[in-house]
Write a protein that binds this DNA or RNA. Structure first.
Lengths: 204, 204
DNA sequence: ATCTATAAACCGACCAGTCGGTATATAATG
DNA sequence: CATTATATACCGACTGGTCGGTTTATAGAT
């Protein structure tokens, strides 16, 4: 019905993109609507036409971000077939050349800091984690159907693995001097493999 | 010379305390100097007498915070004697009743979000991590002198363990519904024990 | 002509930092 | 001891600027 539905989609994509770039570069707290307008090549009024408020825009931007990153992980994982290889396919998380990574952590850390004080943001975070967990869980279960990883329960183990990825990432991103990518990758693999081989099945 | 050197220390402690409480409650982005003044029972001018700027105050508050938390961990760890017990002595990180914990994560996440865009903050973070690493490393090495943990190198393993703690904590704190304390503790232990038993010594 | 898209100007709330001033405490002086 | 001088501690009104949001104006499409 809208005369140009394509234009709206295009503009919204432009705006979200500009918002994510700007947030990544300067951090939520230091980003103004003007900054985003300029980055998007629009005026204040133009932007307001598509997003009512800053909150609105940020929420939409974060949603888009999470979807993008998840898709990225899903696709990378699908290039492997062995379950363990899949579970260890997240080296890209520690690749500084990767544009998703470069912008991703600033956005993620900003998001989490807000989520601490905002239930709706926590909900989004939970959903995101849950989609990672589904992905990892299915890999673990495929392994278990081959008689591997039999000492763990798939879901808690999947959650633990996803937490391990992020734990290493935080160190690598914020204190890279002492935590180079090689450390992150090696540690991630040791922790994941160690966890999958853990003996007592009662918990994970 | 100063008429009351104690007063200055007292006031500064009051202010820092008020700042940390307020930041934990509402998040850096939503905290005004007025908020902190009120929480500290001082006027704007009174506060300005002790801290030149908001930046100044925040930096001092974060420093105090990191020191406090580290002391807490160090003390808890020292109540155990077996190296592995010491390395697993961080269950308190996932105790919602603990006041340090309750205020700690909001502050830490806020801090990290700022650190992404501020080298000085990253420096503080690095130093903090390094002090944890020294602590954990010495426990690992005491274990190694007893012929245990022989498949890992102490420092990278210490860094990995510290990252694991935090990875689990993030899930527990932001998505506790699906990541209860029991999950966090169990996962942390499995990952740490698994990592310490990992086979190839080349990395960790 | 009407409706959408976009721009430009504007408004009002908010807030960090400043500044003139007051009160209090110590020190110096007679 | 009394008085003055001086430094510290603290207050709260004010300012200058920022920023989110709104309103008004204009251009283009149907």
């Amino acid at each position: 019905m809208p005369p140009n539905a394509d234009l709206e989609a295009l503009r919204k994509a432009q705006i979200i993109d500009a918002a994510l770039r700007t947030i990544a570069e300067r951090g939520c707290a230091n980003v103004t609507m003007d900054d985003i307008c300029k980055a998007a090549g629009l005026s204040k009024g133009g932007l307001a036409h598509y997003y009512r408020s800053k909150d609105d825009l940020f929420k939409a931007a974060f949603q888009e971000f999470f979807q993008r990153i998840f898709l990225r992980g899903e696709q990378t994982m699908s290039t492997f077939s062995d379950p363990l290889d899949q579970l260890l396919s997240f080296e890209w998380l520690y690749n500084p050349e990767d544009p998703d990574v470069e912008t991703g952590y600033p956005i993620l850390y900003d998001f989490m800091a807000i989520a601490v004080h905002d239930a709706e943001y926590r909900e989004i975070f939970s959903d995101w984690i849950n989609s990672w967990v589904r992905l990892l869980k299915s890999a673990i279960e495929r392994g278990q159907s081959q008689g591997r990883f039999t000492n763990v329960k798939s879901e808690p183990a999947a959650r633990a693995i996803s937490a391990i990825y992020q734990g290493m990432a935080t160190r690598w991103y914020l204190a890279r001097g002492e935590h180079p990518a090689a450390w992150a990758i090696d540690s991630m693999k040791r922790a994941v493999i160690g966890l999958l081989g853990s003996f007592d099945k009662s918990g994970s």
